[in-house]
Design a protein around this nucleic acid. Sequence first.
RNA 1: GUGGGAUUAGCUCAGUUGGUUAGAGCACUGGUUUGUGGUGCCGGGGGUCACGGGUUCGAGCCCCGCAUCCCACCCCA
Length: 403
Amino acid sequence: MISSLRGMNDILSDDYERFTYFIEIATNVAKRYGFHFIETPLLEETALFKRSVGESSDIVGKEMYQFIDKGENDVCLRPEGTAGVVRAFVQKKLDRAGGLHRFFYHGAMFRYERPQKGRLRQFHQFGVESFGEASVHEDATMIMMVSDILKTLGIGYRLQLNSLGDENCMPQYRTSLIKFIESMEDKICEDCQRRKTTNPIRVLDCKNQACQEIYKNAPKLVDNLCDGCSNDFTKLKKILENNEILYEIDTNLVRGLDYYSKTAFEFVSDNIGSQSAIAGGGRYDKLVEFLDGRATPAVGFAIGIERLMELIIMPENARNGYYIGAMDTEAIDIVVELAQKKRKTEKTVIDYKVKNLQNHLKAADKVNAKYCAVIGSHEMKNKTVWIKNLEDKTEQIVEVKNF
RNA sequence: GUGGGAUUAGCUCAGUUGGUUAGAGCACUGGUUUGUGGUGCCGGGGGUCACGGGUUCGAGCCCCGCAUCCCACCCCA
């Protein structure tokens, strides 16, 4: 037997119902906020992710499905969604068109990681990207969108918030943090020593107790924001409070992708194991420029669909449509004909087997039909159909031509 | 990539110190005397015990390898 590759799942039956239910709700919310669907390729030039996500990130450094195609192009399966959307935005010259451009997307992403609960090699994200709006109101809007989606689904969450600063304050902070780390280098764990060069800010949320003690004295990002960033962060918190969105400040919250600046947020759930981030996002004002576009402020988020699916409780399925069957061999042809007719307007499940009434009713019940329609010898004689409403148990006999 | 646990029917799981033909519940399927379901009763099908080796008279059970899943690290959605 050939089975699917490690970390790559089939989606069917209940999972599929859950999946499409989520997409429908998220899509409705995105549309209500004035966002438009965008589909970008699953395969992109490797350079796109190296330049956007960043070569130092784990995603690019060791998790990409990267290969040389038959035309000698260095390509890879997308590990995340933002880079492709930004690439499309620049390629379509929307950066030059000016104005606001708001997109949403959903689809498969690929990362070669060790699978565990809530972490797959092929997984799905629903994401939103907003271009051209520098106001912190748009940052707040992103958070409110996620909140709306989660509320509609009845999913509880904690919102963690941070500001990563911008080109004015971040490099300065980074330097002083590195200086601090270097002064403590012999006391911190191996992971942190590695992080010093790859992603120094990451050391702040090291799980190691000893490290945490040391970092209590480290310079804090929130204390080092420039006026612009600091004002925006204050404003953001105000907007969220006005809209009754609870948040907690997590000064150690870092986005793993290099392109983020200023607002960073993460929605986490305590009910799905250690892969607890169900949505994350933030502002990335420099990314369009990095990808050769005209400087354009931008902000976005992505939701991990599989992680969310663990938390979705589906509404009960009401009975719906018809079940139709024959109690006589001679009736089968008529039943098939009637099913085709009914299918133009209703969900109709047909059973080709001849069964007695009891078994047809059982079968109708099993497929959750609202009506069970049956033709037997009586009905054949009178050219009628016997129909039972399985909800209120009422029965009726209608002429075949009126079915 | 590192460490730990698990793997028996479609699903959830029993399976004694290694001992005849590997079980249950659910699901599926048929019947329940002749046209009334979801909830009664009786029956039936379904297993290379993940896979590959080894020890043994004998392995679902012990040993080694491997794959996958789960948990933690790591990383992130």
